[in-house]
């Protein structure tokens, strides 16, 4: 075997190892991710245009140490009851800036991941709940919650998820996830929250 061939085989091995590691990555974390730093108030009444689909995430570079592969741990969410499923939901919430229904750049990744899961479980029907912090008026927050749920839904549709699998409901500021009155609590409450309603 020539040295050149040895190098080629070694390279192939690295690529295969990398691909294996990718496919066996741990399932998405169920806990809500911390919200992004809040964006400033955003004016403009027109609903945000449906965002363009993102390119697939770049594969990790070969220099990153390969995670030890764990065998046989892939989770079958369909084996769980709806309540169990929603208690440790694989679908991540989307957080919004103050008085905004725009899906910020760092939140597009969460929706992309949610789209992957919805493709993986094609029978799931999901309700996207729009929530607000308490700082606006209670009445107008019903509108803002609707816009948030709709913008998250539009993004998922743009990623190819069938519209009929995605319902929405606005709860305004009626059901805060954190009852606090700090900016941190407010940020947690400005969200689109995903609930699997049938599977």
């Amino acid at each position: 075997m020539s040295a050149r061939l040895v190098r080629l085989v070694a390279l192939l091995l690295v690529v295969v190892a990398t691909a294996t590691a990718c496919s066996r990555k741990k399932p998405p974390v169920a806990r809500p991710t911390p919200p992004p730093p809040s964006a400033g108030p955003v004016g403009g009444a027109a609903p945000p245009p449906p965002p363009a689909p993102l390119p697939e995430p770049e594969p990790p570079v070969a220099s990153v140490p390969v995670e030890p592969a764990i065998s046989g741990t892939s989770v079958d969410y369909n084996a769980r009851s709806l309540d169990e499923l929603n208690r440790e939901s694989p679908l991540q919430p989307v957080f919004y800036g103050y008085d905004s229904a725009d899906v910020a750049g760092d939140m597009q990744a969460a929706l992309t991941k949610n789209a992957e899961i919805l493709r993986q479980y094609p029978s799931w029907v999901v309700t996207i709940e729009g929530h607000c912090d308490v700082r606006g008026t209670a009445e107008y927050n019903l509108t803002l919650g609707e816009r948030r749920a709709q913008s998250a839904r539009a993004y998922l549709i743009s990623l190819g998820i069938p519209a009929e699998r995605l319902k929405t409901v606005s709860y305004g500021a009626e059901f805060p996830f954190d009852p606090g009155t700090t900016e941190e609590a407010y940020a947690k409450n400005r969200r689109a929250h995903f609930v699997v309603t049938s599977k």
Binding site: G43, G44, A45, A46, P47, D99, G136, T137, E139, Y140, L142, T143, E146, R147
Partner: peptide, 26 residues
């Protein structure tokens, strides 16, 4: 295309006041 919300009637019932974000803020 903006959002119109929270209606209320005039005393004679011939007009409606409402909230709209059509120019930005409600």
């Amino acid at each position: 295309p903006g959002n119109d919300s929270t209606p209320t009637w005039s005393p004679a019932g011939n007009q409606i006041a409402f909230t709209s974000d059509r120019t930005g803020s409600p």
